[in-house]
Protein backbone atom coordinates (compact mmCIF):
# COMPACT_ATOMS: atom_id res chain seq x y z
CA UNK A 1 0.00 0.00 0.00
CA UNK A 2 1.16 3.55 -0.59
CA UNK A 3 0.29 6.52 1.58
CA UNK A 4 -1.88 7.68 -1.33
CA UNK A 5 -4.35 4.84 -0.59
CA UNK A 6 -4.69 6.05 3.00
CA UNK A 7 -8.07 7.00 4.42
CA UNK A 8 -6.25 9.79 6.19
CA UNK A 9 -5.59 13.11 4.49
CA UNK A 10 -2.10 14.53 4.05
CA UNK A 11 -3.03 17.18 6.62
CA UNK A 12 -3.77 14.55 9.27
CA UNK A 13 -0.57 12.66 8.49
CA UNK A 14 1.39 15.91 8.77
CA UNK A 15 -0.29 16.70 12.10
CA UNK A 16 0.65 13.29 13.43
CA UNK A 17 4.27 13.86 12.41
CA UNK A 18 4.39 17.33 13.94
CA UNK A 19 2.86 16.07 17.18
CA UNK A 20 5.42 13.25 17.28
CA UNK A 21 8.03 15.98 17.90
CA UNK A 22 6.44 16.31 21.38
CA UNK A 23 6.93 12.60 22.10
CA UNK A 24 8.86 13.21 25.33
CA UNK A 25 6.96 16.24 26.62
CA UNK A 26 5.61 14.19 29.54
CA UNK A 27 8.25 11.49 29.80
CA UNK A 28 7.59 9.67 33.06
CA UNK A 29 9.23 6.69 34.80
CA UNK A 30 6.13 4.47 34.62
CA UNK A 31 4.82 4.74 31.06
CA UNK A 32 7.85 6.65 29.71
CA UNK A 33 6.73 7.95 26.26
CA UNK A 34 3.19 6.50 26.46
CA UNK A 35 1.46 9.86 26.75
CA UNK A 36 3.58 11.32 23.94
CA UNK A 37 2.75 8.45 21.59
CA UNK A 38 -0.98 8.64 22.27
CA UNK A 39 -0.83 12.43 21.79
CA UNK A 40 0.99 12.01 18.45
CA UNK A 41 -1.40 9.49 16.88
CA UNK A 42 -4.59 11.03 18.31
CA UNK A 43 -5.50 13.05 15.14
CA UNK A 44 -5.40 9.82 13.11
CA UNK A 45 -7.49 7.93 15.69
CA UNK A 46 -10.06 10.76 15.65
CA UNK A 47 -10.47 10.30 11.89
CA UNK A 48 -10.47 6.51 11.91
CA UNK A 49 -12.90 5.88 14.77
CA UNK A 50 -16.23 7.51 15.58
CA UNK A 51 -16.48 9.15 19.00
CA UNK A 52 -17.35 6.55 21.59
CA UNK A 53 -16.06 3.21 22.85
CA UNK A 54 -14.09 2.31 19.69
CA UNK A 55 -12.06 5.54 19.80
CA UNK A 56 -11.57 5.29 23.56
CA UNK A 57 -10.33 1.73 23.18
CA UNK A 58 -7.93 2.81 20.42
CA UNK A 59 -6.49 5.61 22.61
CA UNK A 60 -6.08 3.24 25.56
CA UNK A 61 -4.08 0.86 23.34
CA UNK A 62 -1.42 3.59 23.11
CA UNK A 63 -1.43 4.68 26.73
CA UNK A 64 0.46 1.55 27.78
CA UNK A 65 4.23 1.54 28.39
CA UNK A 66 6.22 2.78 25.42
CA UNK A 67 9.86 3.80 25.17
CA UNK A 68 12.25 4.09 22.28
CA UNK A 69 14.69 6.58 20.80
CA UNK A 70 12.78 9.84 20.17
CA UNK A 71 13.97 10.18 16.55
CA UNK A 72 13.43 6.61 15.36
CA UNK A 73 10.09 6.66 17.16
CA UNK A 74 8.88 8.36 13.96
CA UNK A 75 9.02 4.94 12.27
CA UNK A 76 6.85 3.41 15.00
CA UNK A 77 4.42 6.35 14.91
CA UNK A 78 4.06 5.84 11.14
CA UNK A 79 3.67 2.09 11.66
CA UNK A 80 0.99 2.61 14.31
CA UNK A 81 -1.03 4.72 11.85
CA UNK A 82 -0.50 2.00 9.20
CA UNK A 83 -1.90 -0.68 11.52
CA UNK A 84 -4.69 1.45 12.97
CA UNK A 85 -6.05 2.04 9.47
CA UNK A 86 -6.28 -1.72 8.95
CA UNK A 87 -7.80 -2.27 12.38
CA UNK A 88 -10.43 0.40 11.66
CA UNK A 89 -11.27 -1.36 8.37
CA UNK A 90 -11.58 -4.69 10.20
CA UNK A 91 -8.62 -6.23 8.33
CA UNK A 92 -6.50 -6.76 11.46
CA UNK A 93 -7.02 -7.56 15.12
CA UNK A 94 -6.14 -4.74 17.58
CA UNK A 95 -3.42 -6.98 19.03
CA UNK A 96 -1.33 -6.48 15.90
CA UNK A 97 -0.52 -2.84 16.61
CA UNK A 98 0.34 -3.60 20.24
CA UNK A 99 2.65 -6.43 19.15
CA UNK A 100 4.19 -4.17 16.47
CA UNK A 101 5.14 -1.54 19.05
CA UNK A 102 6.41 -4.09 21.56
CA UNK A 103 8.54 -5.84 18.96
CA UNK A 104 10.14 -2.72 17.52
CA UNK A 105 10.65 -0.27 20.36
CA UNK A 106 13.63 -2.10 21.91
CA UNK A 107 15.68 -2.79 18.76
CA UNK A 108 14.96 0.66 17.31
CA UNK A 109 15.95 2.28 20.62
CA UNK A 110 19.29 0.47 20.52
CA UNK A 111 19.80 1.51 16.90
CA UNK A 112 18.87 5.14 17.57
CA UNK A 113 20.97 5.41 20.73
CA UNK A 114 23.98 3.93 18.96
CA UNK A 115 23.74 6.09 15.87
CA UNK A 116 22.35 9.42 17.07
CA UNK A 117 23.36 9.75 20.74
CA UNK A 118 26.69 7.88 20.68
CA UNK A 119 27.88 8.70 17.15
CA UNK A 120 26.27 11.61 15.30
CA UNK A 121 25.96 13.87 18.36
CA UNK A 122 29.61 13.50 19.51
CA UNK A 123 30.86 13.77 15.91
CA UNK A 124 28.85 16.90 15.10
CA UNK A 125 29.73 18.40 18.50
CA UNK A 126 33.45 17.74 18.08
CA UNK A 127 33.47 19.08 14.51
CA UNK A 128 31.48 22.14 15.64
CA UNK A 129 33.89 22.80 18.51
CA UNK A 130 36.90 22.28 16.23
CA UNK A 131 35.47 24.86 13.82
CA UNK A 132 35.22 27.57 16.52
CA UNK A 133 38.88 28.66 16.12
CA UNK A 134 38.34 28.94 12.34
CA UNK A 135 34.79 30.27 12.05
CA UNK A 136 34.04 31.84 15.42
CA UNK A 137 30.29 32.18 16.00
CA UNK A 138 29.55 30.75 12.52
CA UNK A 139 30.60 27.35 13.86
CA UNK A 140 27.25 27.25 15.68
CA UNK A 141 24.98 27.36 12.58
CA UNK A 142 27.36 24.98 10.79
CA UNK A 143 27.01 22.52 13.68
CA UNK A 144 23.21 22.84 13.65
CA UNK A 145 22.91 22.38 9.88
CA UNK A 146 25.32 19.44 9.89
CA UNK A 147 23.42 17.64 12.65
CA UNK A 148 19.88 18.45 11.61
CA UNK A 149 20.32 17.62 7.93
CA UNK A 150 20.83 14.02 9.03
CA UNK A 151 18.42 14.16 11.96
CA UNK A 152 15.41 15.71 10.24
CA UNK A 153 15.82 13.87 6.93
CA UNK A 154 16.04 10.53 8.73
CA UNK A 155 13.11 11.39 10.97
CA UNK A 156 10.87 12.23 7.99
CA UNK A 157 12.12 9.18 6.05
CA UNK A 158 11.48 6.83 8.97
CA UNK A 159 7.95 8.18 9.43
CA UNK A 160 7.27 7.61 5.73
CA UNK A 161 8.68 4.08 5.91
CA UNK A 162 6.43 3.29 8.87
CA UNK A 163 3.39 4.72 7.10
CA UNK A 164 3.94 2.85 3.87
CA UNK A 165 5.61 -0.41 4.94
CA UNK A 166 4.29 -1.20 8.40
CA UNK A 167 6.20 -4.22 9.76
CA UNK A 168 8.39 -4.37 6.67
CA UNK A 169 10.13 -1.13 7.69
CA UNK A 170 12.63 -3.27 9.62
CA UNK A 171 14.26 -4.46 6.38
CA UNK A 172 14.44 -0.90 5.05
CA UNK A 173 16.02 0.35 8.27
CA UNK A 174 18.53 -2.52 8.24
CA UNK A 175 19.60 -1.54 4.70
CA UNK A 176 20.61 1.92 5.96
CA UNK A 177 23.52 0.21 7.79
CA UNK A 178 23.53 2.75 10.60
CA UNK A 179 25.95 0.89 12.94
CA UNK A 180 28.78 1.00 10.36
CA UNK A 181 28.15 4.68 9.63
CA UNK A 182 28.09 5.35 13.38
CA UNK A 183 31.54 3.77 13.83
CA UNK A 184 32.99 6.12 11.18
CA UNK A 185 31.39 9.13 12.87
CA UNK A 186 32.91 8.18 16.24
CA UNK A 187 36.33 8.17 14.60
CA UNK A 188 35.69 11.70 13.30
CA UNK A 189 34.82 12.79 16.85
CA UNK A 190 38.08 11.40 18.27
CA UNK A 191 40.22 13.01 15.53
CA UNK A 192 38.56 16.42 16.01
CA UNK A 193 38.93 16.29 19.80
CA UNK A 194 42.64 15.46 19.48
CA UNK A 195 43.15 18.19 16.89
CA UNK A 196 41.42 20.76 19.04
CA UNK A 197 43.48 19.78 22.09
CA UNK A 198 46.65 20.42 20.07
CA UNK A 199 45.37 23.75 18.76
CA UNK A 200 44.48 24.91 22.29
CA UNK A 201 47.88 23.90 23.63
CA UNK A 202 49.89 25.53 20.82
CA UNK A 203 47.94 28.81 20.81
CA UNK A 204 48.16 28.97 24.61
CA UNK A 205 51.93 28.59 24.40
CA UNK A 206 52.17 31.20 21.65
CA UNK A 207 49.98 33.72 23.53
CA UNK A 208 51.42 33.30 27.02
CA UNK A 209 54.92 32.01 26.66
CA UNK A 210 57.36 34.27 24.89
CA UNK A 211 60.64 32.35 25.15
CA UNK A 212 58.90 29.56 27.04
CA UNK A 213 56.22 29.04 24.36
CA UNK A 214 57.22 25.51 23.28
CA UNK A 215 57.52 24.42 26.92
CA UNK A 216 54.09 25.76 27.85
CA UNK A 217 52.46 24.26 24.76
CA UNK A 218 54.07 20.89 25.48
CA UNK A 219 52.95 21.13 29.13
CA UNK A 220 49.38 21.84 28.06
CA UNK A 221 49.44 18.87 25.66
CA UNK A 222 50.89 16.64 28.38
CA UNK A 223 48.04 17.75 30.64
CA UNK A 224 45.58 16.59 27.96
CA UNK A 225 47.29 13.20 27.67
CA UNK A 226 47.38 12.77 31.46
CA UNK A 227 43.70 13.70 31.65
CA UNK A 228 42.87 11.07 29.04
CA UNK A 229 44.66 8.41 31.07
CA UNK A 230 43.00 9.50 34.34
CA UNK A 231 39.49 9.57 32.82
CA UNK A 232 40.10 6.15 31.20
CA UNK A 233 40.93 4.87 34.71
CA UNK A 234 37.55 6.13 35.90
CA UNK A 235 38.78 9.19 37.78
CA UNK A 236 35.71 11.49 37.75
CA UNK A 237 35.77 14.15 35.02
CA UNK A 238 35.16 16.93 37.54
CA UNK A 239 38.15 15.89 39.66
CA UNK A 240 40.41 15.96 36.58
CA UNK A 241 39.05 19.35 35.48
CA UNK A 242 39.49 21.00 38.90
CA UNK A 243 42.96 19.47 39.33
CA UNK A 244 44.05 20.86 35.97
CA UNK A 245 42.64 24.28 36.85
CA UNK A 246 44.47 24.24 40.18
CA UNK A 247 47.73 23.22 38.53
CA UNK A 248 47.38 25.91 35.87
CA UNK A 249 46.48 28.53 38.49
CA UNK A 250 49.61 27.71 40.48
CA UNK A 251 51.78 27.68 37.34
CA UNK A 252 50.25 30.94 36.10
CA UNK A 253 50.77 32.61 39.45
CA UNK A 254 54.40 31.63 39.96
CA UNK A 255 55.97 31.19 36.51
Amino acid sequence: MSAGDSALTAGVLLRVFMRSLFLQASWNPQGMQNLGLAYAVFPALERLYAAGPAREEAVRRHLVFFNTHPYVAAAIVGGVVFHEERIARGEEAPDRVVAFKAALMGPLAALGDGFFWLSLKPAAGAVGAALVPLLGLWAVPVFLVMYNLVHLLLRVRLYWLGLTLGDRLVEAVARANLPARGARLRTVAAVCAGGLAAWLAVTFGANAGGAHAPLLAAGCLALGVASYVLVSRRVPNYVVLYLAALLACVAGAFL
Binding site: P122, A197, L200, A208, G224, Y228, V240, A244, A245, A248
Partner: peptide, 24 residues
Protein backbone atom coordinates in the same frame (compact mmCIF):
# COMPACT_ATOMS: atom_id res chain seq x y z
CA UNK B 1 46.58 31.88 37.18
CA UNK B 2 42.87 31.83 36.33
CA UNK B 3 43.73 33.05 32.83
CA UNK B 4 46.08 30.06 32.44
CA UNK B 5 43.41 27.75 33.79
CA UNK B 6 41.16 28.29 30.77
CA UNK B 7 43.40 26.63 28.14
CA UNK B 8 44.32 23.96 30.69
CA UNK B 9 40.65 23.14 31.34
CA UNK B 10 39.89 23.26 27.61
CA UNK B 11 42.70 20.76 26.96
CA UNK B 12 41.31 18.51 29.68
CA UNK B 13 37.83 18.85 28.18
CA UNK B 14 39.20 17.91 24.73
CA UNK B 15 40.83 14.81 26.25
CA UNK B 16 37.53 13.92 27.97
CA UNK B 17 35.80 14.42 24.59
CA UNK B 18 38.23 12.06 22.85
CA UNK B 19 37.59 9.51 25.58
CA UNK B 20 33.84 10.09 25.34
CA UNK B 21 33.79 9.77 21.54
CA UNK B 22 33.17 6.01 21.96
CA UNK B 23 35.52 5.36 19.00
CA UNK B 24 37.19 1.94 19.04
Amino acid sequence: GLAWAWPAMASVAAAIAAQGSHAR
